[in-house]
Design a protein around this nucleic acid. Structure first.
Lengths: 395, 395
DNA sequence: CGTGCTTAGTTCAATACGTGAACCTATACT
DNA sequence: AGTATAGGTTCACGTATTGAACTAAGCACG
């Protein structure tokens, strides 16, 4: 039972303005006249609202289109230089900070490598803050033109005033990354799980565009998923929804690093595949190792496809998505050649109706999209609220 | 990416009025003054809005509360007699039609038994239409005081102008129940899967009250689930979300009636349990048979609990609900004594964080709640829109 | 070259909504 | 009877969308 908030007339404006801006962002450039059709708003409203947005420099004119016999249409578009967004990818081996304009064109990037098992939270925070300064300098963007910073981290992100992070592999147990960031910068900070920010990137700019019900599946050494229902990333009661990798596919099955047994991840995660193939998991280059398994061990691969089909069918039956994207470095490697087999394996295990409603395709964005997705969190906020800039960066 | 609709000032009213009505329905009776706190609306707005609702007879005064030193508070509540709703349960062996007032007090009911494999759509439609007339006569409610009819049916409900039903067990393959109903009555008709209407009933009036993220699990001879995300029942791309019973828990496992192998339903559905216990599934009284297995076959039951724990853990990990309700006749039988064991089995297979965020409890409403839940579809529509009555029942 | 036609975009009065402040109302206590 | 207190109503105001009237900018054709 949803309990929506009280609304006032001003919320109407906020909502409609956000819709106009999103329409212009995704379907633009467009003329005022076209916008009436796209948004459902009257010409009068479009006129006043575009007037405001032009005055605020949030949108700009983008040329004219001659019409045969009639006043030419003036095209409008979101001003890509109105503001910039920063995305951060905090991973096992590196901290990456990227600067984008509003069209998500990368303007600058910096990488800091992390020594394994050297994930001190203060160190990571310092790297992020330093990275922000570096990309702003490189991109020649003043801090007061930045709409915010999005950060993708491993583990579970507990929302709250301090934004606590729980990441076993990093030894982070309730680390207040949000509070630490906000102490170091006045920019608005958004933090989410890295797998979810990757999903967000696929949803907005990759293979998930336009899908209202989708699941973005991530297969790397671990296995996760981003569930999108009614166009919104599903978060659950404590923001940990999407843990698909620990779905059980066998009673008393293979040991998983989560401590449980029979987890999907223990079968189709890169580590699980290598282990099933008898390859020592202490390999230096996992990608190469997985490549060799793909070429030389059809038995293991066939089994992998079968398990993956089982896992996907659970998603299809339970969630009835219109699209499933397979991503993550291992997912892309496996999927490149074996997608037809994966589809067949999913079909065998799925109910006809929901299977037919689903298309199973590869992700488009590669494994580097964590920072892009994190930056998208900022963009999303901007497009929804179109909050006038500069207020936050005051202090 | 959600694309919200254009909004006007009148949507503000509709939304706020709906919120006021829902507040009064679930937290009422309440005084105007209390409503300002509960809704966040100003006293002025509450005053004009309650004035309208009183004039329309949708709400009524419900006595006064003396305050020590000050004007007494006048309590307001939803008028239970303002309108009535009808719920229909179309099941294997019967068609049941129930009449409720707005407080969901049953005012009349009628049952028609169906001969097995005699589920002709015209026959069922005739029974429903006749049942509507009967309950209205019995309850002495004129048709123009009925807000609508909700129908719970087996199988997949394909939304659209005709509301097609696909139910293998009934031999219904795209049967236009919606169109047939609308041809036979001018009342608004809402149709949904029966498992989902039961879930809806638990969510509104049973153990799910107040939960924003919940899963209502249904274990009968089949196994299903109603997934609630952000307070809304999840439907997916083609309205078939919630098919939890065919989640695979074993590669090449037990044969399921869906045609697949290793489905959860084949292990923990009543039929699956009896079969695993070696009881012939041609029994006349399944409940008694399951009761005997519960008493005499601890081995089978222990196994069942383990499988159920596996299945629940998939839900916990993937969806991160705050509450899981176990319902359905078999679910209630198993759960009555074995809930602690089920919880333990779920814990073993779940990640710590999401497991701790979930409470696993029994459903409160028993298996007869299909019609109640179906009627709740009408109630939901009414509370959201508070559409002035009588317009539909015109013809 | 100017008149009419067509399409794009703007302005304005009408209408709807929620809100704060001033106001009215109904009780208890003294 | 008077006063304090709390509940409830009224109204001017600011903000929102909209349809209708209007202006703007091009083309075709005589």
């Amino acid at each position: 039972m949803a309990r929506p908030e009280r609304r006032t007339v001003r919320d109407v404006r906020r909502g409609n303005r956000g819709m106009l801006l999103r329409t212009l962002y995704f379907d633009g450039p467009a003329s005022r006249h076209e916008l009436t059709g796209l948004t459902g708003l009257s010409a009068a409203t479009i006129s006043t609202m575009t007037g405001d947005l032009l005055a605020e420099d949030i949108i700009v004119e983008a040329g004219q289109v001659d019409s045969d016999g009639g006043r030419p249409r003036v095209l409008l578009r979101v001003n890509p230089a109105y503001g910039h967004v920063i995305g951060v990818d905090v991973a096992e081996t590196h901290v990456r900070v990227e600067l984008f304009d509003l069209e998500m064109t990368e303007k600058a990037r910096v990488d800091y490598s992390l020594r394994p098992s050297h994930h001190d939270i203060e160190l990571v925070t310092r790297r992020i803050l330093a990275g922000i300064d570096v990309v702003l300098a490189d991109g020649q963007v003043p801090a007061d033109r930045v709409l915010g910073v999005g950060i993708g981290v491993p583990g579970i992100v507990e929302r709250g005033p301090d934004t606590l992070i729980h990441a076993k592999t990093f030894g982070w147990d309730g680390v207040p990354l949000g509070a630490l960031m906000r102490a170091g910068t006045s920019l608005p900070v958004f933090i989410d799980n890295g797998a979810k920010t990757m999903g967000q990137a696929e949803l907005w700019f990759g293979g998930g565009r336009g899908a209202a019900h989708a699941v973005i599946v991530l297969i790397g050494s671990g296995v996760g998923a981003t569930v999108v229902a009614d166009g919104v990333v599903m978060r659950g009661a404590s923001n940990s929804a999407g843990e698909w990798g620990h779905t059980k596919i066998a009673l008393e099955g293979r040991q998983c690093r989560c401590g449980g047994r029979g987890c999907l991840e223990a079968y189709i995660g890169a580590e699980g595949i290598l282990d099933r193939a008898g390859v020592p998991t202490r390999t230096s280059d996992w990608q190469a190792a997985l490549g060799r398994v793909l070429e030389t061990r059809p038995d293991v691969i066939e089994e992998t496809v079968a398990y993956l089909g089982m896992g996907l069918s659970s998603l299809i039956n339970l969630l009835n998505p219109e699209r499933i994207l397979i991503g993550g470095w291992a997912g892309l490697m496996i999927g490149r050649d074996l997608l037809p087999g994966i589809r067949a394996a999913a079909r065998v295990n799925s109910l006809t109706q929901p299977f037919n409603a689903t298309s199973i395709i590869l992700g488009e964005l590669g494994p580097d999209a964590v920072a892009l997705g994190a930056a998208t969190l900022v963009l999303e906020e901007f497009l929804n609220t179109s909050a006038p800039l500069r207020l936050h960066a005051a202090s």
